[in-house]
């Protein structure tokens, strides 16, 4: 069945909210230099309450919280998109190749995938991060390497069923080459799943980056919402958490929600049984 993903996404309430919020984040991140000051500059003005000068006041070392919030979005989105792409790529590569090549290769790939699925990755990540203190790029690579298996599994099973599907057999019977089938049929048919895999990886990456920053094992020079919350929590007895900790937490939740909404909506679209229209 052909599904118009884009149309359906725009029709779905969760999809609509997700899309709008996502665009909002993208725009904010793009115009960040124009609406903020340098987030790292420390001033003597510490613990300022929100004012026109400092929209969300200043923190314990006099940095502008608003600017740090906006630049924190950059970090989160960068990690989200980076991990989303890398882990989806890894998943697609290994999942699809396992299905297409088969044999021993598939067996080994599947064993590794299944094994990784039962490993508590977050704790492993913490351990690794604690040892090597990764930069943001290394963090992207690390998270991706610990989180491609779910996608790979789904992509493999999808590719397997695609491989057996009649329209591919039909294409073969017209004399289509392997490459033609891969690029004309398999990859386009996999596209929606890749998108969903991207979204879920991105969502998890945002959470992981913030979490690791929260417990203080990421690059200290990078502005991050997790770190902001961590810092702010030290001053819980002051009123300052209202414009320091809360906005950071809200922004983080909102970004995770974007991916949750988009993912849920897309999954619903892909599974016609969950859709309302064919009740």
């Amino acid at each position: 069945m052909h599904i118009k993903y884009w149309e359906e996404l725009k029709k779905d309430t969760f999809g609509k909210i997700g899309l709008v919020l996502f665009l909002f984040f993208i725009v904010i991140v793009l115009i960040a230099p124009f609406i903020t000051r340098d987030p790292q500059v420390q001033t003597a003005l510490v613990f300022e309450a929100p004012s026109l000068e400092h929209l969300l006041g200043t923190n314990d070392v006099g940095q502008d919280i608003w600017s740090r919030l906006v630049w924190g979005a950059r970090t989160s989105l960068l990690v989200a998109i980076g991990v989303g792409m890398l882990s989806t790529f890894l998943g697609a590569l290994i999942g699809a190749s396992a299905a297409l090549i088969g044999g021993w290769y598939e067996e080994i790939a599947m064993r590794i995938i299944d094994a990784f699925l039962v490993i508590p990755t977050v704790i492993l990540l913490i351990l690794v991060a604690a040892f090597i203190r990764p930069s943001i790029w290394l963090l992207i690579v690390l998270i991706s390497f610990l989180r491609w298996q779910g996608g790979a599994r789904i992509i493999r099973s999808q590719t397997l069923s695609l491989k057996e599907s009649v329209h591919i057999s039909a294409a073969k019977s017209f004399g289509a080459s392997r490459f033609y089938i891969l690029f004309r049929h398999i990859i386009p048919d996999l596209a929606p799943i890749l998108v969903v895999s991207f979204i879920y990886s991105a969502r998890m990456a945002v959470f992981m980056e913030a979490g690791l920053a929260f417990i203080g094992i990421t690059d200290p020079s990078v502005v991050s919402w997790g770190k902001m919350m961590h810092h702010a929590l030290n001053f819980y007895y002051l009123d300052i958490w209202k414009w320091w900790l809360l906005p950071a937490g809200m922004a983080l939740s909102a970004l995770i929600l974007v991916f949750a909404f988009l993912g849920y909506s897309l999954e619903k679209i892909m599974d016609p049984r969950l859709r309302k229209s064919n009740a």
Binding site: F14, L245, S253, A260, F261
Partner: peptide
């Protein structure tokens, strides 16, 4: 529930802590 699924655990914890305990 969808909204709830957006809250990372540590933020949820912090909010409960700040509100109910502090």
């Amino acid at each position: 529930m969808m909204t709830l699924s957006g809250f990372p655990s540590f933020f949820m914890g912090i909010m409960l802590l700040l509100f109910f305990a502090v």
